[in-house]
């Protein structure tokens, strides 16, 4: 379980995340939603210690993240940010093999390569595994990065806007893979999403933030609800149930 206790992050004296406490249950998909500047990405960055927190504590499996050794934590939590600009030329296989660094410190064993192969297969990248990242389409590159995270084989997987710049087909493909990772491999996935309908269709639990604070949290069905969304986004979003999913009609 990930437990965030009273965490605050200040930028230039102003809180962007303001005394947030939240618990993230295992073996579920939890999504953070909210308007721009709500502090979703910052919160995710603090959980993955990409950003330092100014106050508060974050426990992962009952241990404060500051008390983990770096590579120990990297075997427990992995993070994928929305921009993944890399300066060096790597093939997909090279990139995915980096996912084994927390275990092998760069010297990959047979066992490590097995994980790499498996991750590549899981993301259906076998045919292009020797292509360089700069030759790939946006969807392929995102899959390659998710394969790296998969090879990292962590209990918790955090993703910041994993659908950024992807078309509909690839967005759905990525979401299905994440769902399968939870259902088949028993992972715990947390992501930040802009689109409430993707959050609605694929997550089990939703945390809605606004102005650095949690406005509401609860099972998906409770949050994808007109009065709750009004509070979060300051707009009227009628909800329809289509194919068993609650869909917000926010286009008009």
């Amino acid at each position: 379980m990930i437990e965030v206790r009273d965490v605050t992050k200040l930028y230039g004296g102003k809180p962007v995340v303001d005394s947030v406490s939240v618990a993230i249950a295992r073996n579920q998909i939890t999504s953070f939603i909210g308007p721009n500047g709500a502090g979703k990405s910052t919160l995710l960055s603090m959980i993955s210690r990409l950003a330092d927190k100014d106050r508060g504590e974050i426990f992962i499996n009952d241990r404060e993240i500051g008390r983990y050794k770096s590579n120990e934590l990297a075997r427990t939590v992995s993070i994928l940010k929305q921009t993944n600009h890399i300066n060096i030329r790597l093939t997909i296989r090279d990139l995915v093999s980096f996912g084994r660094f927390p275990y092998s410190q760069g010297r990959l064993t047979k066992e490590d390569w097995r994980y790499v192969d498996e991750a590549i297969r899981y993301m259906e990248l076998e045919d292009i595994e020797n292509k360089y990242l700069d030759q790939l389409s946006g969807g392929q590159r995102q899959r390659a990065f998710i394969a790296m995270v998969l090879a990292q084989d962590t209990e918790y997987v955090l993703l910041d806007e994993p659908l950024n710049n992807l078309d509909m087909k690839h967005s759905v493909q990525i979401m299905k893979v994440l769902r399968r990772m939870v259902d088949e491999l028993g992972k715990t996935v947390v992501f930040v999403l802009h689109d409430i309908n993707f959050a609605s269709c694929y997550s089990d639990y939703i945390v809605a933030l606004k102005g650095g604070k949690i406005v509401r949290e609860g099972p998906t069905a409770d949050i994808i609800d007109t009065p709750v969304l009004r509070e979060v986004y300051d707009m009227e979003i009628p909800i329809e149930t289509i194919g068993g999913n609650r869909i917000g009609i926010y286009f008009s």
Binding site: S48, R49, L50, S70, N71, E72, L73, A74, R75, S78, I79, L80, K81, N84, H85, I86, N87, I88, F98, G99, F101, P102, Q152
Partner: peptide, 10 residues
Amino acid sequence: LGRDHAIGLG
């Protein structure tokens, strides 16, 4: 790979 990936990989 850059700061974020490096931290993420321990």
